[in-house]
Design a protein around this nucleic acid. Sequence first.
DNA 1: TTCCGCTAGTACAGTATCGAACTAGTTCAG
DNA 2: CTGAACTAGTTCGATACTGTACTAGCGGAA
Lengths: 138, 138
Amino acid sequence: MTADGAQLWTLNQKLLSAVMDACTGELTDLGLETKEFFVLAEVATSPYPAEIAAALMIPKASVTVYVRNLVAKGFIRREIDDEDLRRHRLVPTTEGKEARDRALSALAAEYDRRLARITLQDRTELQRILQEMLKSSE
Amino acid sequence: MTADGAQLWTLNQKLLSAVMDACTGELTDLGLETKEFFVLAEVATSPYPAEIAAALMIPKASVTVYVRNLVAKGFIRREIDDEDLRRHRLVPTTEGKEARDRALSALAAEYDRRLARITLQDRTELQRILQEMLKSSE
DNA sequence: TTCCGCTAGTACAGTATCGAACTAGTTCAG
DNA sequence: CTGAACTAGTTCGATACTGTACTAGCGGAA
């Protein structure tokens, strides 16, 4: 059977939820919901809610919720942006950074556990292919 | 930079939602919600709700909802299973099959559009890698 | 200035999701 | 036969999500 798009889609879909499921426990131990974690991890690169929404392709309204939770949990802090008073510049706290790094390790470990049985070459291959496919986005 | 797990995860995540976003329009034209479509597509291989829930890794309660909708829309039909009277054997109707096939084409087309810039070989490669990673699940 | 069209973030309210408890049917040991 | 332990599927109620409408600030044209 050929590798048709729909096939790959579901394959990918399943892989992602399997990995996520495996890590949910560790994340909750750190006090993080799955979605919150992704927002937290993105803060370093995209310090404003609108940017996060765009980067993670989730609605702004949802980002509002996750940011509120992360602030309540003390993982990030809001600052007023001097450049543009509408914007909230998000800054990870020390605990935020720590939680994020631990979560990232757990996630990477799980993914790596699955990648362990394929070659390093395949891994690079995979990254290249996915990046290529995403690039054509717009 | 090496292809670490978290990196690949988000890459993959974004790719999936980008593809899905691009197809949502066509699916709704066919009268299908995203989640419903996946259930409909799975019926052929996994004709019972419990099987579908396991295969797609979604809660049974959610399958109940999607199946109800699909039945209401005339895309599938429930039959009593002679082997086990607790089970509902799901059967795609003619319209169901047609909608499913069209949706699959749309999805595949979009995915393919993104794969167009990489080789056929890469495509097979990708499938192999993903399958390999998923297999290690348990 | 003042107006106008634009963007950042939020609030609210309706929908979607899903854990837990339930009903119905099965299986099998005694 | 029972009935205890199990599985299929559903229902219910609580929570999560997100579209839409909103407020506040920006930036530029006149």
